[in-house]
Design a protein around this nucleic acid. Sequence first.
DNA 1: CAGTGGTCTAGACCACCGC
DNA 2: CGGTGGTCTAGACCACTGC
Lengths: 238, 238
Amino acid sequence: MKPSYLRISEQLDQYIKDGIFKKGEKLPSEIEMASNFGVSRETFRSAVKVLEREGKLFVKHGAGTFVVNPLPNIENNIETLQSITDMIQSAGLKEGEKRESISLEPCNQEWADKLCLSEGTPVIVNKRTRMAEDVPVVVSINIIPEQFVGEEFIQQEELGSLFQYFEEQRGIYISRTDVELNVPLHTDRNCQKLLVYPETTVLMLKQLHYDILNEPLMYSMDYFRTDVFTFTMRRARG
Amino acid sequence: MKPSYLRISEQLDQYIKDGIFKKGEKLPSEIEMASNFGVSRETFRSAVKVLEREGKLFVKHGAGTFVVNPLPNIENNIETLQSITDMIQSAGLKEGEKRESISLEPCNQEWADKLCLSEGTPVIVNKRTRMAEDVPVVVSINIIPEQFVGEEFIQQEELGSLFQYFEEQRGIYISRTDVELNVPLHTDRNCQKLLVYPETTVLMLKQLHYDILNEPLMYSMDYFRTDVFTFTMRRARG
DNA sequence: CAGTGGTCTAGACCACCGC
DNA sequence: CGGTGGTCTAGACCACTGC
């Protein structure tokens, strides 16, 4: 049984979609609406908060609650964390991979900082080319502290989603990622594999993945072909 | 007078920073904590929700509320919308601008789609080079429907922040922006002005700005030097 | 099963807006 | 000033977790 406030927020959303509540219009007061829905005012307010967070209602203290113009859904919202495997598959493409190399290397200053290790600590460096319909679309380099992976990690030829690997094989859930957007030079070695067309450009994400307790787990550098992937997001004023 | 739930969330945050509540530790139950703080359970829960949203606490139904590893603050979080003027100034640099061109042009398919106009409707196209310490760091192109700006817009040589212009001169508050990340080819004309060093690369944001009621107001294409600006963000699992 | 967080209520008072 | 949303309470019952 879904809680009331969710049912009400969905119904309000539908009313907006159906034009029963029109853009710019002020909703009746919370007390009145709560009474209409047969719930307490706090419960109705919870429903409003859901839609306010989604940018569908605008609440102004002392003035009222207003319907705003519905925004389009954003596809490929980069703010929602998903694995590269999911990104390729949700575009309806056949996902594949080729391991370029895997090695145990002393970590450099940058990796050490991010992963909270001391410089020089051995880490696993896993480099793969990810394919969509047998064409290379992503080059990804993962840096992982030794203790987080097992023997099978090094031996397996095809790893697939590391998110899935960590969850199913190691019981670790990746919940959050800090990202730095980068644009590599087109002379960057890791770009070369992706520059199959002269008009192709590449976006690189440096990503630090955390588990549920915000422990840094893996650092990645992922090179994406921008002619294959579209990255969008929504910004809001502080 | 700050509301209790905010005071409590700040105090909890401080306790975490001070190590009084340690990473991974389970907090006492909500009833107990609420009683400790001398507030009702709902009020204490509001405080917890603030920190949960900030990724500082992890709440698990039926199990408890846990302190997680504090994450570093993210600088230059791209998710927080700010004007280019602000971005330059908050880096402690002297901001300047040079208008390259301003014209009234029939809008193309892409602009028309975004701004909800018909193709061919005249729009103002404003192209500027933005400077930091007298060096070009951003090229920005703004596409604005005629009715949103006044005569002074076209005549003024230095516009400064358009966010500020809209707010102060036109009473319009830009509250939200949809962004598409792009990497232009280094042969792109708008890049050329920015490629002062051979290792410089450029990130381009196509941005559709909305007012408080989510009405599309302005479409922009902003070219940023990645050696000057760092863009970071935080992603979370759906 | 006991203990935890999730939802919900009816009512109260406060802070803010616009007339 | 009246009407709106913002906060807060004390208590109730439900849903989930882990032993």
